[in-house]
């Protein structure tokens, strides 16, 4: 048994050496679907500047990305939330020190169907709607119709921000429809006259009507000055302080006219 596991170790080690030798210029990016559009565009631009580097980008969710950093199966993990205490503990136990880099801001915008007459909601009104306390549009100045509340599934980074900034730790009522992605929320609201939902800034389109929150419009400027109340930082995590190709990529991401321009192109709010 002991002999066997030793043999396996040796084989794995050889395989590992071989792959690192043959693919020295490989960069793996994995994680949040919210950060995915940024990572994809950045990877394309990065590969144009460094043609000998092969960057592969995949989604899978913030949790999966951070898990991959801890397991060492990725170089960069995208995350739409900060790392959690439990994940840090697990990482430290395995001798890994994840380092966060804030790469962009994202606004979360409450949206309704374009035919809905509502234009503005206060944070308290949003909270009451998602708590299930207000369930008819007429209570907040709309038509006499039941509100169809659309939320994100509870483990998404977007939901976490919503829970923190709008719900203030109270629970979204069980009758809310939960959709699995920003795109699905956008689709569901666009197809339902009396729905309300929330999506990332980059998912706004002509089939959705963005609402102002406490009278403030969700724009890049308002997010940067923190006038708009529902915004968050998007992260990229590296395993320890980045070196080599990973460092090049992070530097590229933070560069005001390279990476940060791509952030704006992808529909998010650049850092500066």
């Amino acid at each position: 048994m002991k002999f066997n596991s030793l043999k396996v170790m040796i084989v794995l080690l050889c395989a590992f050496c071989l792959t690192t030798a043959a693919w020295a210029e490989n960069l793996e990016i994995k994680g949040s679907t919210t950060v995915l559009p940024i990572a994809q565009k950045a990877a394309e631009a990065f590969m144009k500047i460094y043609p000998d580097v092969n960057v592969s980008v995949s989604g899978g969710g913030s949790g999966n990305g951070i898990k991959a950093i801890i397991d060492g199966t990725t170089d960069v993990a995208d995350s739409s939330r900060f790392i959690k205490d439990k994940e840090v503990a697990l990482a430290v136990k395995k001798g890994v020190y994840p380092v966060p880099f804030g790469v962009a801001y994202d606004c979360i915008v409450p949206v309704v169907h374009p035919t809905n007459p509502i234009k503005n909601l206060t944070i308290n009104q949003l909270k009451d709607i998602y708590k299930g306390k207000v369930n008819n549009w007429k209570d907040i100045g709309g038509p006499d119709k039941k509100i169809v509340v659309i939320s994100r599934d509870t483990s998404s980074g977007t939901y976490e921000v919503w829970e923190k900034l709008i719900m203030k730790k109270e629970r979204v009522f069980p009758g809310a429809l939960l959709q699995a992605s920003n795109g699905a929320v956008a689709q569901a609201v666009a197809k339902n006259t009396y729905a309300v939902g929330y999506v990332g800034l980059s998912y706004l389109n002509k089939d959705l009507k963005p609402l102002t929150v406490d009278g403030v419009k969700a724009t890049a400027e308002n997010a940067m000055t923190a006038a708009y109340p529902i915004s968050r930082v998007l992260y990229m995590f590296t395993k320890g302080w980045p070196t080599g190709t990973t460092l090049k990529f992070i530097n590229f991401m933070m560069h005001p006219v390279k990476g940060q321009k791509i952030v704006a192109e992808a529909g998010y709010v650049p850092l500066y």
Partner: peptide
């Protein structure tokens, strides 16, 4: 399916 991707490992 909806939650597994984001659940802390």
């Amino acid at each position: 399916a909806a939650e597994m991707g984001e659940a802390p490992f």
